[in-house]
Design a protein around this nucleic acid. Sequence first.
RNA 1: GGACGGGUAGCUCAGUCGGUAGAGCAUCGGACUUUUAAUCCGGUGGCCGCGGGUUCGAGUCCCGCCCCGUUCACCA
Length: 511
Amino acid sequence: MTEHDLQGEETPQQSETGAEQELRRHRLAKLERIRQRGDEPYKYIFDRSHAIAEARTELESLEKEAGEDVPPAFEARLAGRIVARRIQGKSTFIDIRDENARIQVFLGEKQIGAEAYEHTKDLDIGDFIGVWGSVKRTRRGEITLFSEGYEILAKSLRPSAEKYHGLADVEIRYRHRYLDMVANPEVLDVFRKRIDMIEVMRSWLRSKGFLEVETPMLHPIPGGATARPFITHHNTYDSQFYLRVAPELYLKKLLVGGFEKVFEINRCFRNEGVDGRHNPEFTTMEMYEAYQDYMGLMDETEEMLTHMMKSIVGSTTFSYQGKELDIGQSWNRMTLFDAIRQYADIDLENNKDRDTAAKLAESAGVEITLDMGYGKIVDEVMSERVQPNLVQPTFLYDYPWELSPLAKRKRDNPELTERFQPFIACLEVGNAFSELNDPLDQRARFEAQVALREAGDDEAQFLDEDFLTALEVGMPPAAGLGIGIDRMAMIVTDSPSIRDVILFPQLRPGV
RNA sequence: GGACGGGUAGCUCAGUCGGUAGAGCAUCGGACUUUUAAUCCGGUGGCCGCGGGUUCGAGUCCCGCCCCGUUCACCA
């Protein structure tokens, strides 16, 4: 097959033009040459003796043992992707990288033979190869595999990103994360930290006796949060389902059923705005603990989150986007209304009249609209005037009951609920409360939400009859907590955008 | 949805007052047996996001649209 035939038959997409196709055509021609000499450009297996990082470590430890007069060396078979190539006539240096490390490979005509050397011309940056030979240092001190042979493991047909500046186009980075990872390997570290963080959290929960459960993603009635859901359809049942906005109601049904400590780490979906702190699908950890209240849970939350952050950042102080955080001491705790008094200098606790509260909020520089009720006004003042001050880890607690239809009323003040939220680096990272287990009060709260919904609030919650039945069967007193995993991942990786901590963030489709 | 910024070669980016589209890297050809952002010589590569308009002439000015980012609104 000629080059012309190849490009005629195998043009991948019309969107590719000019140089891009030209580059691909060169690689297709190399692929064809490899095949024509009886080699397979897509191998099935390669027997590695070491990961690259292991080989580097091994040489370094041999160097420690050996005297300076005996340069250490050992045989190895390594594999990886070619990330750089420097050709000097009859010798070539390539850099190969595997998941964790990079190493230089020396390919000399004398060492691998004229024929094999000639075939190195069919290698490109991006190809996977396996190489074998002796690992030692070059005269300039670079750890190098001096190759006695190599084989191509997988041919790459696409040009790579620029070697020095890497890939900067955020749209390509987010839409084609694999290109981002190839060009910017430090991206892998961000996701390793996210993975480790979740693992630390999971082990902490398991060590405290919590059971990890899985509850439905497809909900006949969306519940557990005030949020607009995604709607989908099941063919066999010919019925509408919602992608869950929260697992809360199912997890509480498990407390009814007899489990006492459960948690779930999984996805939630909300059909709302997308920005640097919100992705349509995001991950939460929700935990529920029987015979516990919100104050006990606050202690546990502090212990868990501090432990998580310390484990991942390896220190009690670190910075998030220029903000210096100190997690070495106990968290700040203040009631929501005390915080509003402190930071907005107004008293909303003793001014519950809607219009009075609105006037006070406006006097504190918060924009208030007519559709906002008292609860919403409090929430607004909190976000605008309090939250930006909560750099150090802080709990706000005791929220007006209007804001929390699933939370238990405060034991000595029915206007409030026993609810708290943890804030870190001014980010709201969770939500927790003493769980409402009074089925009659819960029904009244649901009915208030239904009234809001009928008045046009499409984020108001639905009445979930089966959940009410469960509460009537009986749920033990309990406290529950939700943690935004993506937000915590942003904090421990110092990432400015939620898209930096989600492998495949949602962008507008069809581009 | 609003405001602001951006979209030029595969990648990273220049592009002046409206006058033939540029560089580096990558790629192709040549030289080169210890380079490491290798070096040197030569070449290929462009729907300047898309569509209109103004103009003798538009990457550049005007209008509309698309996508991305930041921010506001909403939310975790």
